[in-house]
Design a protein around this nucleic acid. Sequence first.
DNA 1: AACCAATGGTTCAAATAATGAACCGATACA
DNA 2: TGTATCGGTTCATTATTTGAACCATTGGTT
Lengths: 266, 266
Amino acid sequence: MGTTSKALSLLNHFSRATPQIGLSELARLSGLNKATVHRLLAELTSHGFVEQVGAGREYRLGPAFLRLAALREKQVPMREVALQQLTELSTKTGETAHMSLLNGDVLSNLAYAYSNRHGTMVMMEDAEVLELHSTGSGLAVLAFSPTRFVNETLSRPLIARTSKTLTDPAEIRALLPAIRKRGMATSTGGFEEDVISYAVPIFDARSACIGAMAVAAPVSRMTDELRQDICDKLMIHARQTTRILGGFPPDGFPPYEPQNSLLREA
Amino acid sequence: MGTTSKALSLLNHFSRATPQIGLSELARLSGLNKATVHRLLAELTSHGFVEQVGAGREYRLGPAFLRLAALREKQVPMREVALQQLTELSTKTGETAHMSLLNGDVLSNLAYAYSNRHGTMVMMEDAEVLELHSTGSGLAVLAFSPTRFVNETLSRPLIARTSKTLTDPAEIRALLPAIRKRGMATSTGGFEEDVISYAVPIFDARSACIGAMAVAAPVSRMTDELRQDICDKLMIHARQTTRILGGFPPDGFPPYEPQNSLLREA
DNA sequence: AACCAATGGTTCAAATAATGAACCGATACA
DNA sequence: TGTATCGGTTCATTATTTGAACCATTGGTT
């Protein structure tokens, strides 16, 4: 691993849970020497990627990201596109819609939209992190990721977020073929109790899976009708999002077939 | 300069004007060896800080910044705070208000707000870059920056954006004491013809100047009354912003003294 | 007050990783 | 066909990174 990678890896230790970290602590977390971490942090600091906060001289992410994120968004308006699609999706379904991007071995929230149809909603957070094994979005991404990546992900400890979280690698692996065939994953109470989510993968120009779009609803509100509506609308908007972002679904990804026509006949 | 700094410097070559750059071109721009640039880009790519776009295999900023910017903003809601202040400021003054942060030797836009009082407005852009010599914000920052920094900045070639841009280092230097005394800078037509702007520096917890808040109006609309109103409101909101962000004006920075009372007497 | 265990930060010889001239294959143009 | 780009790779030379041991400081404990 190159020096630059080590420096960049340091940034991954900052999270919502640990937004600022001391020198020794970061050395411990990263497994690097304290002197090394100090030098790398100095370089990151001089570029505004981290900054030192007064009291305990701890470090936190710097303001440079705001500029670079704005620049990135200016050229590749992912967030804007996503937000637009999610707003429509949540309005149509009456439930919370969100999209997240694969970042290393976790998903990070890109955008979300609420509906005001009901008094209760599944809530989302900015910069929230979703694990691959415990969420619908994660399963959708796993199903369309290279085998090696799946193996690595499932060989790490799988934390049980709730009593319903799947933590058996074999069990998760068994779900993937069906997800691939359907082009959609679902998870009930895996990340939060009483939340059911449906998720469809999003692809880039090389047909690599880069994240997922999902709709999350309280389990108590779910009916066959709502389920059908969510899946229908989600499939449309997820495919549309992939397309607008310049991506292509991989060979064999199921095309959208409206199923509500069948419902209406029934 | 360390290897990490070289890698991070590569990111600075991406801008609104050149959002994607080829390997050879980037080697030329950075003055580094092509092999070195390639390796550094490979490391940046593996962390999502840059990505390669299909055709010419050019590189552009990656999606990792969205996540890290969200995380940064979650902990230090600069943009949110700024936007709030700017919205009030532009509503009160009827003109465009914006805030930018010092990034290396230029200012980059953090946020802006328009008013709907008039049919014409000074327009801003996301991820826009402001030079220190040609804008009110830049002068405000220069006036409250270390001498060494000022010297370095003014020793570089100063591009004339308009016929009114100040390009003589001595002339610019001569303005700074008055700006320091007043706690506010102004520029007429320096960046864009027919735009006058007033700017107040923003400080961090160590009293270092980190950027500026400004109001920009068409020259044709400027009257003594509007000028007074803008300066008054701007001073209030800029000081408030510094305070909310946890910063402190340096010793000798002029406190806010309402001057509209004087106007009303007259 | 003396002591201990942390902290952030620094030093410098030894170990390792970065470097760059030359190279390859591909593409584009004349 | 020849030339001039491009992105990417190689590998001996070189220079940077590394890390154990070291300060100075802080906060808590005896």
